[in-house]
Computed example of a mutant assay.
Amino acid sequence: MKASKKKIKIIVERTDTGFSGFAEDYPVFTTGRTVPELTDNALEAAKLYFEEEGIALNHDNLKFEIDFKQFFQHYKVINAKFLAEKIGMNPTLLSQYVQGHKKPSDKQTEKILGGIHQIGQELAEISLIYRG
């Protein structure tokens, strides 16, 4: 099998039991109770689809997308006002994006995603201790 540089866009949607994901351009779809389970299941489904073509895939070949409203509904721990202040965006504007009242430009989307990644990186580098 040959490794592929193919990028497969997987659209993620929340469901009553977790998440579903489907590829825009291929008949690849799956579900998962959690995001990590969904990503693993999506990779397995994509591998099965491309197996006949002799194409080997890994997680780098998959690009997961979820809309703003569903993202902030799931990740309630991310406070939109805090995020807006962190990235220098008007909190009301970010709220309008989150509620689906306005659509952010590609530049604004990248700015928001960069802020989310920055918060994630900061959290990943912290250890919690208890001092009694």
Score class of each variant (00 low, 15 high):
46 A>Q: 08
68 F>Y: 15
87 I>K: 02
54 G>Q: 07
36 P>Y: 13
55 I>S: 11
95 S>L: 09
82 F>K: 10
10 I>W: 07
51 E>M: 04
2 K>D: 05
30 T>L: 10
132 G>S: 15
26 Y>D: 04
118 Q>D: 15
48 L>E: 14
62 L>F: 04
79 N>L: 04
25 D>Q: 06
89 M>W: 01
68 F>I: 03
41 N>C: 10
12 V>G: 00
123 L>N: 12
52 E>N: 10
8 I>W: 01
60 D>N: 14
112 I>R: 09
113 L>S: 07
118 Q>L: 15
82 F>S: 04
76 K>P: 00
32 G>E: 00
118 Q>G: 10
18 G>V: 03
50 F>H: 02
41 N>G: 08
32 G>Q: 03
25 D>M: 11
1 M>E: 12
11 I>T: 08
131 R>Y: 13
127 S>C: 01
88 G>F: 04
129 I>F: 14
107 K>N: 10
16 D>H: 13
17 T>L: 06
13 E>H: 14
81 K>G: 02
106 D>L: 09
27 P>H: 09
104 P>L: 13
2 K>L: 14
104 P>F: 02
79 N>I: 03
69 K>C: 05
45 A>S: 12
40 D>R: 15
98 V>W: 08
80 A>L: 01
40 D>Q: 14
51 E>A: 14
23 A>S: 15
4 S>K: 08
63 K>M: 12
62 L>G: 05
38 L>K: 02
61 N>A: 05
9 K>Q: 10
10 I>H: 01
101 H>L: 07
3 A>R: 08
129 I>H: 10
82 F>E: 13
16 D>L: 14
72 F>C: 05
2 K>A: 08
70 Q>H: 11
126 I>E: 05
89 M>S: 00
55 I>Y: 03
70 Q>M: 06
55 I>C: 09
29 F>W: 04
63 K>G: 01
22 F>H: 11
101 H>V: 07
127 S>Q: 12
55 I>K: 15
43 L>N: 14
119 I>F: 11
49 Y>Q: 11
127 S>F: 01
69 K>A: 08
40 D>A: 15
77 V>T: 13
109 T>P: 02
85 E>M: 12
86 K>L: 07
90 N>P: 06
64 F>G: 06
18 G>K: 00
20 S>E: 10
90 N>V: 14
53 E>W: 09
100 G>C: 04
109 T>Y: 07
13 E>P: 00
132 G>E: 13
26 Y>A: 14
16 D>N: 15
14 R>G: 08
22 F>P: 00
85 E>H: 07
11 I>A: 12
6 K>A: 10
2 K>I: 11
63 K>E: 08
66 I>M: 15
90 N>W: 06
40 D>W: 00
106 D>Y: 11
20 S>H: 03
132 G>H: 11
